[in-house]
């Protein structure tokens, strides 16, 4: 997870979302949404409940196919592809309601996160070739390093359900980092965290960004979002309401009346 040099990063825009729409029955969850994510930035998506933020994540990850529109990641169209293909292309996510593997230890959760970067299958698992042992050893070292990076070094052997809620949020980020993503989608990572933890989260996200990972961040905590984001996209009832720097968004009349004013 070294910081990639400029020549390794030919894509100014790591992702372009173009005219994406998605309806569930009668509900138009997303309506003709377009925006672009600058490589290496923290790009926030805000909006009131039901604005379509999580739906946007599900479409980018391939969990849903959009009704229309395109999702372009590093110049390739990815809408409608399988989730596991998209993960191996370098996108990963966390969930709004933490979804860890409860019966697995913290370390094992991160190891599962490395699934797409390892390749041992049924036969090689049984045969235990020397390369399998090496792969396993390397995966463990990497997983420990990632746990350390998010500040959970000592919890490796606890079952993830036994961890305090705040730590579970950090563990889910660790798991998402394990696939060595270039783009991470974080769905309300601060929700349920106390003030100290939210502060730590902000620092962690900055560190992740410094390692060259682009972050698409859905967050309701405005002071955090304003403090760390490069751009902010505002969704409202499935539509793009505004987009700009934190300052521009804070001063935007439509946004204030539609969203910030109410909160």
């Amino acid at each position: 997870m070294s910081i990639s040099s400029p020549e390794e990063k030919p894509f100014q825009k790591v992702m372009k979302v173009e005219g994406v729409s998605k309806a569930f029955g009668g509900i138009q969850a997303l309506q003709d949404v377009s925006f672009q994510i600058e490589a290496g930035h923290i790009h926030a998506v805000i909006g009131p409940n039901g604005a379509g933020k999580t739906t946007l994540f599900n479409i980018i990850m391939g969990a849903y196919a959009p009704d229309s529109g395109r999702v372009i990641y590093k110049e390739k169209e990815i809408q409608g592809r399988k989730v596991h293909e998209i993960v191996s292309m370098g996108i990963s996510r966390t969930f709004q309601n933490v979804e860890l593997f409860g019966s697995l230890t913290a370390l094992e959760n991160v190891l599962v996160g490395r699934h797409v970067r390892t390749r041992c299958g049924f036969l090689s698992a049984v045969a235990r070739w020397p390369w399998v042992k090496e792969e396993e050893k390397a995966a463990r070292e990497k997983a420990l390093e990632i746990l350390d990076f998010v500040g959970l070094k000592k919890t490796g052997h606890s079952r993830s359900v036994d961890l305090p809620f705040g730590w579970q949020r950090f563990l889910e980020i660790a798991r998402a980092l394990a696939s060595e993503p270039q783009l991470m989608l974080l769905d309300e990572p601060a929700s349920g965290l106390n003030a100290v933890e939210t502060q730590q989260l902000g620092e962690l996200l900055i560190h992740i960004k410094e390692r060259g990972v682009t972050i698409l961040l859905v967050e309701h905590d405005m002071s955090l979002t304003m403090a760390i984001s490069n751009e902010i996209l505002v969704l409202h009832q499935g539509r793009r309401l505004a987009e700009g720097s934190p300052r521009e968004i804070q001063d935007n009349e439509t946004v204030i009346s539609a969203y910030l004013g109410k909160v």
Binding site: M61, A63, V83, H84, V87, S88, S92, R93, F95, E99, L100, F101, G102, S103, L104, E108, V112, G113, H115, V116, R175, A176, A178, S179
Partner: peptide, 14 residues
């Protein structure tokens, strides 16, 4: 084992 715990999250990690 991850599949047992959460199929959605298993898919999400690839």
């Amino acid at each position: 084992r991850s599949l047992h715990d959460s199929e959605r999250a298993s898919a999400a990690v690839g």
